[in-house]
Design a protein around this nucleic acid. Sequence first.
DNA 1: GCCAACGTTGGC
DNA 2: GCCAACGTTGGC
Length: 146
Amino acid sequence: MKSEEDDVSIDDLKHMKRVAWYGVRNYQARNYMRDDMQIGDMVLFYHSNGKPSGPAGVARVVSIPYSDNTQFDSSSPYFDPKSKTLGARWVMVDVEFIEKFPKVILRESLKESPALSGLYLWSRPRLSIMPLTKTEFETILSIGRK
DNA sequence: GCCAACGTTGGC
DNA sequence: GCCAACGTTGGC
């Protein structure tokens, strides 16, 4: 799951313990949250627009999907005038902090690993939420914990 | 701050 | 349903 470092960073998550993943306004990213996430699923927390950008730590899904009410708030940057209260268009899940890597993993480090050549990160660069295989997740985790 | 990639919108 | 115009993402 990608978050802009300036918006919610891994340190912010660590401090708050648990955050609602508001603001997803892309259908495919939403579908992954809505249809594929289960409570207890592990998450790589990725800093986008970071210095540098890359996986910064680990979180865990701790809620089922529910309505992201920033879509109904006309003062929010995530307001969506086309969304209706019944059958809300945009949903979110809550995630909790698990760990922070000693250093953000560099994208070039990810590229060096043959096991990570199939990451959606390469083929779908603008997708903010993407699935990982168990192997991919564990490979990245082992790089991050070095 | 630039800009390539790409998702969305809306006229037809 | 096509596709041009437009807006956004996100690495650099």
